[in-house]
Amino acid sequence: MKRTLAALPLIAVAGFTHAATIDVTVSNLTQAITFTPLLVTAHSSDSYLFRLGESASPELQAMAEGGDISGLNTLADSIGAYSVANPAEGLLMANGSTMISDWDTGENTQLTIVAMLLPTNDGFVGLDSWSIPETPGTYTLYLNGYDAGTEANDEIINGGGASGVPGIPANPSGMGGENATGVIATEVNDRVHIHPGNVGDTDPDGGISDVNSRVHRWLNPVAKVVVVVK
């Protein structure tokens, strides 16, 4: 059983049916990385949308490569999850935050959050199946940047956002480049893993990367999530 709270002994909870009303605030902590529309979903412990060390589903791939959360949202609906799709109503820019208020998660016990990181090839910010506490209070989580393991991190901004199409679909924060030759040609790890980060370069008209090495790198965590259990 996977738990996302570090270093805390956690009691396995069976038959937990407490209905919760929560506020969820997601903040983009990066300097210049943009989050595509977020999917925030509460679901049972029987299912999950992604997991470190496992292959990405086609739905996760579509989100991670192109920012398309429709497939994951449909998947979540099919397992009885309660979801809030696109709470920021569009991109969540660096230093921005978005809040979901008075959200009834029903009897769903696990919280999952995903959004693509731009400009990356298949990077995403993720929270996998965090157990929503029963005890009212304010809980703060920090999320890492993950790599879906589905596309080579070539760092070429070419509009390629469809699954299986190389390249980065967009760079909303600007300050990038064009005509890059590519950082790497193959995906080195085909399972979901911790993103090794953007490389970038300082050449706006060529070089190995269309990403700016002085602007579009990041260190984890990339997002802060505050959950208020009421």
Binding site: R3, I194, P196, V199
Partner: peptide
């Protein structure tokens, strides 16, 4: 650092690391 920033490095961009390397689940 990797070759992306240092031509003398034998390591490649994918060898870079971030805040953690993985996890241990103790049961």
């Amino acid at each position: 650092v990797s070759q992306a920033d240092d031509a003398d490095s034998v390591l490649l961009p994918q060898h870079r690391i971030n805040n953690r390397a993985g996890s241990v689940v103790v049961t």
